[in-house]
Amino acid sequence: MQVLTFLLKRFGWMIVTVWIVFTVSFFLMRQIPGGPFNGERVLSEAVRARLEARYNLDAPISEQYFTHLWNTVQLDFGPSFKMQDFTVNEVLAQGFPVSAALGILGMVFAISIGMTSGIVSAVRRNSAYDYSFMLLATLGIAIPNFVLAALLIVVFVFNLQMFPAAGWGDISQIILPAFCLGAPFAGYIARLTRTGMLEVLGNDYIRTAYAKGLSPRTVVLKHGLRGALLPVVSYLGPAIAGILTGSLVLERIFVIPGMGSHFIEAAIQRDYTLAMGALLTYTVLLFVMNTLVDLAYSIIDPRVQLE
């Protein structure tokens, strides 16, 4: 019941947010001079008028707004202005799984690398491992992912020739971008894990556990990890937002046909409908992911109340 009201409330706020984003972006995009119909050649007025009529651009702006809003409510983002063979829904449907695959793999990298090094650091506190991992973590956080990507391309693509330079459609093509995407978050997660573990490992009950004669491995993995999980899960929300943004630039560097590429290109080419469709999708995605994270958080920590 509590979960249900929580979800309903969240849903309500999501609608409000999406509506605000829709309205702001709608009016912004319509302010921009430079219609969508520019080819190498100039269109005659008659042709331009016909095209504008076809895309409903000749109606008064208030009417356009409401038609567009109603279509959006029905999840119909209309035709893409620039890619004449596709509707926005088709473009997003093609781009989303690609970005999702990249994002998930990046996240898995971030969590697995981050937590492993965090645990090692916590267990071997103040050792050389600890210092070097924490240094690496800060590096990962500090260096922008596009600089990292350039570095890794030079090393792994040109020098070691382990991975292809760019593209999509093969396992080897996804590893490098996913790693670059996950790196900063691996850094954060490593630090959070370390702190969380140290806090837990300093508690009385851990000492009791040791006293009971449990092996250090059991203690660390069973109790320590649980303590580390809380801050990590609560960090997943911002991390997901960061992964979404990071994929914008990485998809561009590695020529990956995901949502990020479509969004940037749409914004550059003023593909009104596509850009707005992508923006709204991002908004909803962010909301849903945050809600999931909150749910997960309430599951692992009984003290947390959903509200």
Binding site: W13, M14, V16, T17, I20, V21, V24, S25, L28, M29, Q31, I32, P33, G34, A241, L244, T245, L248, F263, I264, A267, I268, R270, A275, A278, L279, Y282, T283, L286, F287, N290
Partner: peptide
Amino acid sequence: VFYSIPFIFIVIFIMSFLSSP
């Protein structure tokens, strides 16, 4: 509400908006 708006994406909009003639 602002927290759940992907601002970075909106900034990208606005930047292209600002450079328009």
